[in-house]
C-alpha cells in the first residue's frame, strides 16, 4: 500500500512552492539590485561567489537543478492530463488553471534557453562571469531577448503565485470558498507586485 502517485504529486507541490519558490525569490532579489546600478548588482553577485565552489555547485545541483528537473518533467505529465476549457467555462479559477499549464509550457522552453545560454554556455563553458555590464549589453543589444526575459519572469511569477493558492487547496489549508478567495486575491496581489519589480529592474538596464 505505497501510493507512489500520491507522494510524487505531493512532492511536486512542495518542491514547486518551497525549492523553486526560493530560487525565484533569489533571482528577483539579486536582479532587483540592478536598480542600484552596476556596483549594487555586481556586489550582490560577488557575495555569492564567497560561497565555496563545491558547496555552491552542490546547491546548484541539489537545490535548483534537481528540483527543477523533477518539477518540470512531472509537470509536463500533469499538463498532458488536462483538456483546458476556459473558452467554455470562463470562470476566473479555470482561467488560472489553464494559465498555470500554459505558463508551464512556456517556462520549460524559456528555462532551457536561459540555463543553457547563461549558466552553462556563458558562465560554464566560456567562463565569462555574469555581471551588470554583461547583462546590460546583452539586453540593450537585443530588446527582443529582454522582452522574452520579462515574459519568462512574468510566467514564473504567475506560476508561483497561483501555485500558492493551489498549494493551500491541495494541502487542505484553505477549505471554504471565502478563504480560498482571500488567498487567491493575496497571491495575485503578490504576483502583481513581483511583476512590477521585474519590470523595474529590467527597465533600469535601458534607462541607466
Amino acid at each position: 500500500m505505497f501510493h507512489t502517485t500520491f507522494y510524487v504529486r505531493r512532492l511536486h507541490s512542495l518542491v514547486g512552492l518551497l525549492a523553486l519558490g526560493m530560487v525565484l525569490f533569489e533571482h528577483i532579489f539579486t536582479n532587483s539590485m540592478a536598480l542600484g546600478g552596476a556596483p549594487a548588482l555586481n556586489g550582490a553577485l560577488a557575495m555569492m561567489e564567497l560561497i565555496p565552489k563545491p558547496i555552491f555547485l552542490g546547491l546548484e545541483i541539489g537545490a535548483i537543478a534537481a528540483p527543477l528537473l523533477f518539477h518540470a518533467i512531472y509537470g509536463i505529465y500533469i499538463c498532458l492530463q488536462a483538456k483546458n476549457n476556459p473558452g467554455r467555462y470562463g470562470y476566473v479559477r479555470n482561467w488560472q488553471f489553464a494559465l498555470q499549464r500554459w505558463t508551464a509550457w512556456f517556462l520549460v522552453v524559456f528555462l532551457v534557453w536561459h540555463i543553457f545560454y547563461l549558466r552553462i554556455f556563458t558562465k560554464g563553458i566560456a567562463g565569462t562571469p555574469i555581471s551588470y555590464e554583461l547583462l546590460q549589453s546583452y539586453f540593450v543589444a537585443n530588446p527582443v531577448y529582454a522582452l522574452l526575459y520579462i515574459l519568462g519572469m512574468f510566467a514564473a511569477i504567475f506560476h508561483f503565485c497561483n501555485g500558492i493558492t493551489t498549494f493551500c487547496m491541495t494541502w487542505g489549508i484553505a477549505k471554504g470558498p471565502r478563504i480560498q478567495n482571500v488567498i487567491s486575491l493575496m497571491s495575485m496581489g503578490l504576483c502583481a507586485v513581483l511583476c512590477l519589480v521585474t519590470l523595474a529592474f529590467m527597465g533600469s538596464y535601458f534607462v541607466m
Binding site: 470562470y91 479555470n94 488553471f97 489553464a98 494541502w171 487542505g172 489549508i173 477549505k175 471554504g176
Partner: peptide
C-alpha cells in the same frame, strides 16, 4: 491527487454541492 483545482466542478454542479470545499477537506 489528480484534482487540479480548476474549480469548474462547483460551478457546474446542478445540485449546488460545495464540491471544492469537500475536496479540500478530503485533501486534508
Amino acid at each position: 491527487t489528480s484534482c487540479g483545482n480548476s474549480q469548474n466542478c462547483v460551478q457546474a454542479c446542478p445540485k449546488n454541492i460545495k464540491l471544492t470545499t469537500y475536496l479540500a477537506q478530503l485533501n486534508r
